[in-house]
């Protein structure tokens, strides 16, 4: 039982497509529905911010850890962020322990772009002494249960963790910077949300579960904030027609705004 390369079988593929022909999905959704989202925050005491996000049965955990570091020389007054993702072998029979594989790196970079380019974190707020000490936020994601579409789940988990992150205040004694016990929230200016559309045969479906994901020809993710499109990535070996790209984008924007409202309600965020 070659767990590591589970191939979609012909019956499963035909069945999924037949359902899609009548706008149905394996789990009873319609083509454009997202799965239910659940957020748990403040999971891990050792992290400065943490969250588990459930996207249907897909589960991702995110931990944010602030460390002190020197700023980049071209941005002396800005803190920095770093997004890491580990396709944890906990989460799927196809992941193996070992160095990160290509798809895990792609996922980390996609999430990184959505967070970074949305400028959701005010990086100047993370500066302690200009040119000398800044906060670096290490945002690390681990998949717990890969039931498909980790792309959106990762962005959701990162945003949920960041929104509840409290970084320690610092004290400066003789130029030496150290953490105190006091904490403060970080300033967030925007809330990026990613929505991924998959192409299966002639159908475009939102938020595929893993059985749909493994037969999908291609996928396209859009990260959007309240006002901008901030990240995008097409993946998979198939291709999208130009109209399909536009449709997927419009759909992503609509879905994202609903999810953002849900987030705002759950986490008490202020959407501008």
């Amino acid at each position: 039982m070659a767990d590591f390369k589970v191939v979609a079988n012909a019956i499963e593929k035909n069945h999924i497509i037949k359902l899609l022909d009548s706008d149905r999905r394996l789990d009873g959704r319609s083509k454009s529905d997202m799965r239910e989202i659940k957020i748990e925050t403040n999971i891990v005491g050792t992290a400065h911010g943490s969250a588990i996000v459930h996207l249907g049965k897909t589960k991702v955990i995110c931990g944010v850890k602030a460390v002190l570091s020197a700023p980049w020389s071209d941005y002396p007054n800005k803190g920095s962020i770093f997004v890491g993702f580990e396709a944890s072998p906990l989460s799927s029979p196809s992941y193996r322990a070992g160095p990160p594989q290509d798809h895990a790196i792609e996922l980390a970079r996609m999430t990184d772009r959505a967070i970074r380019e949305s400028e959701c974190i005010n990086l100047e707020d993370l500066c302690i002494i200009e040119g000398e000490k800044v906060y670096t936020l290490n945002i690390d994601l681990y998949s717990l249960d890969d039931f498909g579409n980790l792309y959106d789940a990762c962005v959701l988990a990162a945003v949920a963790a960041l929104a509840t992150t409290k970084i320690p205040e610092v004290e400066i004694v003789d130029g030496n910077v150290s953490f105190t016990d006091e904490v403060r929230p970080i300033k967030m200016d925007a809330y990026p949300i990613s929505v991924t559309s998959y192409k299966i045969g002639d159908h475009i479906v939102t938020d595929a579960e893993f059985k749909e994901e493994r037969i999908a020809d291609a996928r396209i993710s859009f990260g959007t904030t309240q006002h901008y499109i901030v990240s995008g990535q097409k993946g998979g070996k198939g291709a999208f027609k130009s109209q399909e790209v536009m449709d997927a984008l419009t759909h992503s924007i609509q879905k994202a705004s609903k999810i953002r409202e849900f987030f705002a309600e759950e986490l008490g965020l202020d959407l501008k």
Binding site: V44, T46, A47, S50, I61, G63, V64, K65, V67, G84, E86, S88, P89, A97, P99, N138, D140, Y142
Partner: peptide, 17 residues
């Protein structure tokens, strides 16, 4: 058995490998 620790599981930031 593959025992791993998350980067944020300890007081200091742990390297990922």
């Amino acid at each position: 058995i593959n025992y791993r620790m998350a980067t944020f599981s300890v007081g200091d930031y742990k390297r990922s490998f």
